[in-house]
């Protein structure tokens, strides 16, 4: 995985044996022209690529684990994720992110039916299925069937609340702390938090599983 972005040279050695597609050539050309025209610098491009690579579900997992052990932090997180993440030294960007909390009575699921809005500045780039027609189309109409495809069953007496991120905010799920996790410290709790449970299509891992 982790490709080396420490140099802006366009020819990634592992890709040179694959023919370049039209849109790959377009991407490369646009990047070069923007740099030559002084609109962006190679350094800015490199730094932005590094920033993209630095975001992963681990950032969200740390935030969730802290919320599980610190009720005051959780209260702040539910008001403003970006600000709360900053307390942990995590830069979640300027697009406002809100957390929606799973409780005994409510299970939340996030989708973007119009495009693929996603809290990428906190948890990284979305999985392909999140951007796919099947998820975007069906998550609002038959969310329980979609969750079943992830092996997730939510009891019928629990409200399934689907959030369509259509506008200027991004959403993440604050999952409920799993049973049996009482003795775990914050780092061990963060290990239970997966990307998918922050989208709401699964529950956190069970301790010891």
């Amino acid at each position: 995985m982790a490709h080396d972005h420490s140099h802006p040279h366009p020819h990634q050695p592992d890709l040179e044996e694959t023919p370049l597609t039209h849109y790959q050539a377009m991407t490369e050309a646009v990047g070069q022209l923007l740099i030559e025209k002084g609109i962006i610098t190679g350094e800015e491009l490199r730094a932005t690529l590094e920033s993209i690579d630095s975001k992963s579900p681990a950032g969200g997992a740390r935030v969730v684990a802290r919320a599980w052990v610190d009720p005051d932090f959780k209260a702040r997180l539910l008001v403003d994720v970006n600000k709360a993440a900053e307390e942990l030294g995590i830069d979640a960007g300027i697009i406002p992110i809100r957390a929606v909390e799973n409780t005994a009575g409510v299970h939340n699921v996030i989708v973007c039916t119009l495009c693929s809005c996603y809290p990428r500045n906190l948890i990284g780039l979305p999985p392909d299925w999140y951007k796919a027609r099947s998820y975007r189309s069906r998550a609002v109409r038959e969310p329980r069937a979609v969750l079943a495809e992830f092996g997730t069953a939510i009891p019928d007496d629990v409200e399934l609340r689907v959030h369509d991120s259509t506008a200027d905010l991004r959403y993440m799920v604050l999952p409920a702390r799993p049973a049996g996790s009482e003795g775990l410290d914050e780092a061990a709790l963060a290990e239970l938090v997966t990307r998918d449970c922050m989208i709401g299509v699964t529950l956190p891992k069970s301790p010891g599983a």
Binding site: V140, E142, V158, R161, V162, T166
Partner: peptide
């Protein structure tokens, strides 16, 4: 910009999920 909550069963004639299920959209 508002968050508006809908009863999911009112959005779809044939909704097969829980009666309390809801859908929240930013409008």
């Amino acid at each position: 910009l508002y968050r508006v909550q809908f009863q999911t069963a009112e959005l779809w004639d044939d909704y097969g999920g829980g009666a309390a299920d809801s859908t929240v959209v930013d409008i």
